[in-house]
Amino acid sequence: MSDTRPPVPPFTHATAVEKVRLAEDAWNSRDPQRVSLAYTVDSRWRNRSEFATGREAIVALLTRKWNTELDYRLIKELWAYGDDRIAVRFAYEHRDDAGNWYRSYGNENWAFDEHGLMHTRHASINTLPIAASERTCFWPLGPRPDRSPGLSDLGF
């Protein structure tokens, strides 16, 4: 296999933190094709109540997601890690096309192959409406700047 996505298992605390930040940055690009390349060609997902298998299904799911979740900004934080697994918690904010704002909180469990590609992703997510004044994610669209607060800093 020619695709390798460092860092690769077995993870250390430092490499797990790096892997989480790389994932956050990719998701904040809102580029479904770019994001899909971090997953095996037969990756299995559970995202809320939706199931997807393979990169094409992942691209389709993310395309639908970001067509309705506008001004999407995400923060991920390492929760736990093992040799080839990482657990994260996250929060993201977005608005709908009517201008209503939402914050979603969740947890993800990830499992990786030896090349650092994720072969399994289970996401549990809850979404709450928020007032525009409650927003916390104000960086320009794209990767979260290094000096921006993380989940723990925000009390999430």
Rank of each mutant, 00 (worst) to 15 (best):
P9F: 02
N107S: 14
D71K: 03
V20K: 08
R21K: 15
E50L: 14
Y72M: 04
R46M: 10
L62H: 02
N28D: 09
T40L: 08
A26C: 07
S152W: 07
T136M: 11
Y102T: 06
A14R: 14
A26V: 00
W139L: 11
A60T: 12
D83T: 03
L61P: 01
P10C: 09
P6K: 12
G99F: 11
T127H: 07
A14W: 05
P143W: 00
A60V: 04
F11H: 06
N126L: 10
Y81P: 06
W101Q: 04
R44Y: 02
Y102Q: 10
S148I: 00
P6W: 09
R30M: 12
H115D: 14
V88L: 01
S36H: 06
A131Q: 04
W45M: 09
T127C: 12
W110T: 02
W139T: 09
S148Y: 15
R95L: 01
E18T: 15
E134F: 07
A14K: 15
H115N: 15
K19R: 15
R48W: 02
L62A: 03
L78K: 10
F112Q: 01
R95K: 11
M1K: 03
T136R: 09
T12G: 11
C137K: 10
Y72N: 05
H119L: 12
V8N: 04
P32D: 05
L151V: 11
D97Q: 13
T63A: 13
I75Q: 01
P143S: 03
A23V: 08
L141I: 14
G116A: 12
A38I: 01
T4Q: 15
H122G: 05
L151C: 11
A16V: 00
M1Y: 05
D97I: 08
L117C: 11
I58T: 10
T120N: 04
V8T: 15
Y39E: 02
E108P: 02
H94Q: 05
A60N: 13
A38K: 01
G142C: 07
T63H: 08
P32C: 10
P10G: 07
V35Y: 05
E56K: 14
D146F: 03
D153P: 09
S133M: 05
E93F: 09
I125H: 01
N28H: 04
P129F: 02
R48P: 00
P149T: 05
Y39C: 01
I75C: 11
S152Y: 04
R55M: 12
A57W: 03
A57S: 14
R46Y: 00
D153Y: 06
T40S: 13
L70C: 04
V17E: 15
G82V: 01
G54H: 06
P149K: 09
N100K: 11
S124Y: 13
L74P: 01
H119V: 04
L154A: 03
T4W: 06
A52I: 05
A132E: 14
V20H: 07
A57P: 03
A132F: 07
F156C: 07
R121H: 11
S152M: 08
G150N: 15
S49E: 15
R55T: 12
G155S: 10
P145L: 10
L141E: 13
W45N: 06
A16I: 00
T120M: 06
R5A: 14
L154N: 02
T53C: 13
N100S: 09
T63S: 14
L154G: 02
R85H: 11
D146C: 01
A132V: 13
I58E: 13
R5C: 12
H94G: 01
L70W: 05
T15L: 10
Y72L: 05
